[in-house]
Design a protein around this nucleic acid. Structure first.
Length: 267
DNA sequence: TGTATTTGACCTGT
DNA sequence: ACAGGTCAAATACA
């Protein structure tokens, strides 16, 4: 296909992005870590100016088995084979980019061929579209309490969390410490024995009282994502890597690594 | 017919 | 110069 002369302006028109926008509004995002934009100043020059160099864009990395379900609507706009990468890289941008000037984008890089495959998702820019996140619980595999015989605990956390959401918490604790006290509204425990084929998972539903996590009713848990050929069925482990100097690793969404000090002062 | 995805070309940054 | 990121026409799909 003969491409017409390329447009003269690629669309990084975030010159008016305020620090607040860049930091993300806690009410607008359920997953985006505000801390991801530490040290990023609002661009002041033209979209093509040096302040908009790719390396200066706020970005953070998430390792996940479910890269397609993060609560926002994305439109794929590109795919590219990356040198020395076994799998192509997929490029997405916020579906509201056009009508709401939301600059959020993400790129997907499959890391391995496991079942399910593990993905590295690099998010760039906070959502400024204001679109309410699609309710979807954080499903996190946790090591069991030391005293427990359970082999694995899956936490189905409410995105709203009853604390005002993950982003808000991140903002509250940014630069200090993270609260890890979001209460899961459902947990699955799996035994550690090998007799899994006969074993029913134990349901521990501590569904929140009305008005807290009620956006996701008990039986209203989102159906498992369709088997889309990517083996993208269940998330089992997440982590964020913040692109801030020496890549600080946080736990999934708002959670600290397991060996972190827990702090419940949000209650 | 409208919208989303695919894909090759072009642009940008290193 | 090269690799990665983005655009937009072509194509697929609902």
């Amino acid at each position: 296909m003969a491409s017409p002369p390329m447009k003269t302006e690629q669309s990084f028109e975030f010159g008016e992005l305020s620090p607040q926008d860049a930091m993300g509004s806690a009410s607008e995002s359920s997953y985006s870590p505000p801390g991801a934009v530490f040290g990023v100043s609002p661009p002041e020059s033209s979209p093509r100016g040096r302040n908009n160099r790719r390396r200066d864009r706020p970005s953070w990395v998430k390792i996940t088995y479910t890269p397609y379900f993060d609560g926002h609507l994305w439109r794929k706009y590109g795919q590219k084979k990356i040198k020395d990468a076994e799998y192509p890289r997929l490029y997405f941008r916020c579906s509201y980019r056009g009508d709401r000037q939301c600059m959020a984008s993400k790129l997907l890089q499959q890391k391995n061929g496991d079942d399910p495959p593990l993905y590295e998702v690099t998010y760039t820019y906070e959502h400024t579209c204001g679109a309410p996140p699609i309710p979807f619980p954080d499903i996190v595999a946790e090591p069991p309490p030391a005293a427990s015989r359970e082999g694995l605990v899956l936490r189905f956390d409410s995105p709203a969390g009853g604390h005002g959401g993950a982003a808000q918490m991140m903002q509250q604790h940014q630069g200090q410490h993270q609260s890890t006290c979001r209460s899961p509204f459902m947990m699955l425990s799996f035994g550690s024995s090998c007799q899994t084929h006969n074993q029913q998972p134990a349901f521990h539903s501590d569904l929140a009282e009305p008005g807290t996590s009620s956006s996701i009713p008990n039986e209203g848990l989102p159906a498992p994502p369709p088997a889309n050929g990517d083996g993208d069925m269940f998330p089992t482990w997440d982590s964020f890597t913040y692109d801030f100097d020496s890549h600080v690793h946080f736990g999934d969404h708002t959670r600290l690594p397991y060996n972190s000090n827990y702090d419940c002062d949000d209650f």
